[in-house]
């Protein structure tokens, strides 16, 4: 009699443990997906804003056509990399970094054109792109911290025993280590 009870209790405890483990992992995985979507939204907004900015400055910057073409090319490369989805986080990150670099060059050039700095429309676009740039950085930072939590959770005991079998795989970081170092540098170059 008592041995049946012990068996039942053991089974109940194991079942309960599995339920909590599974729910915890699903919760974390959803957080990762949500964080990824957050980045995607901002990246898309940047992709949408760039043609507007290029159009606004094109007339003033006749001698910088080459730079403008490069910005547009980098933007198009980033758009197609993003379409590949979360599996291709590493490629997407590379394309986006290229685009960030081009944008920084463009903003530096804008400084040389007083007419542009007096243009309300251009200034508004620049504030919009600055906040989008920052939000991309912050969304990436948040994504990485959520991915770190998720990866740690599926790679440590006891979850590590079962997580792989039921389809929980580690995710890529958006960009390893460099992201954290790059954020303050972007901040300083853009708003001073």
């Amino acid at each position: 009699m008592p041995s049946i009870w012990i068996l039942l209790i053991v089974i109940a405890v194991i079942a309960l443990f599995l339920v909590f483990m599974y729910n915890g992992l699903v919760r974390l995985r959803n957080m990762v997906d949500e964080a990824w979507n957050q980045i995607s939204v901002q990246l898309k907004r940047r992709h949408d804003l760039i043609p507007n900015l290029v159009n606004a400055v094109k007339g003033y910057m006749e001698f910088e056509q080459e730079t403008l073409t490069k910005v547009v090319d980098a933007r198009n490369a980033a758009v197609s990399a993003q379409a590949a989805g979360p599996g291709a986080a590493a490629q997407s990150a590379q394309a986006e970094n290229m685009l960030s670099g081009m944008l920084r060059q463009l903003f530096a050039l804008v400084e040389n054109y007083p007419q542009l700095k007096a243009n309300e429309n251009v200034m508004q676009l620049q504030e919009e792109l600055t906040t989008t740039e920052n939000q991309i950085g912050f969304a990436r930072q948040h994504y990485n911290s959520v991915v770190r939590e998720y990866n740690t959770s599926i790679q440590t005991f006891p979850n590590a025993l079962l997580a792989g079998l039921i389809g929980f795989r580690p995710r890529d970081y958006f960009q390893i280590e460099e992201a954290d170092a790059a954020v303050p540098a972007v901040d300083l170059s853009l708003h001073t």
């Binding site: 957080m31 964080a35 957050q38 901002q42 508004q124 504030e127 919009e128 600055t130 906040t131 920052n134 939000q135 912050f138 969304a139 930072q141 948040h142 959520v146």
Partner: peptide
Amino acid sequence: YKQFVNVVTEMSVASG
């Protein structure tokens, strides 16, 4: 107030 709202949005993104 656009910049203020933008900065709040940035911090909401950063904190999730």
